[in-house]
Amino acid sequence: MDRDEPDMNTALMVDGNAVAGQLEQIFGRDMTMTIARCAGCARDAQLGALMAFIRGPGVVLRCPACQNAIARIVETPSAIYLEARGAAYLRMAPQG
């Protein structure tokens, strides 16, 4: 849309959908409908709906309510790091 960007950094933010492929590589299943409970404010949100900052050394997923960092992902040539200290838990439907 035609709009003056009040803050390019906010405009660059996307959502968890944007890293769905990366999450599926890690977990072997679609994770965008998985619920994350924010360890900061206890709000539930689907991973697909988290705020995602993807233009940096790694990915940072944040709570849409309180902006707490729920998870970080870094891919190096030899490893994938997933840190999720900011999530009280992830809740997903069992597979099979």
Binding site: M1, D2, R3, E5, P6, M8, T10, A11, L12, M13, V14, D15, N17, A18, A49
Partner: peptide, 29 residues
């Protein structure tokens, strides 16, 4: 992203149940 933010906020203010709203942000224009 800024369009999606504006629309999502307006829908929430109209009291549309949040679970009925799905968004996908593309980043900036």
């Amino acid at each position: 992203t800024l369009l999606v933010e504006a629309v999502a906020n307006a829908l929430v203010e109209m009291e549309l149940p949040i679970e009925q709203i799905r968004t996908e942000r593309f980043g900036p224009t």
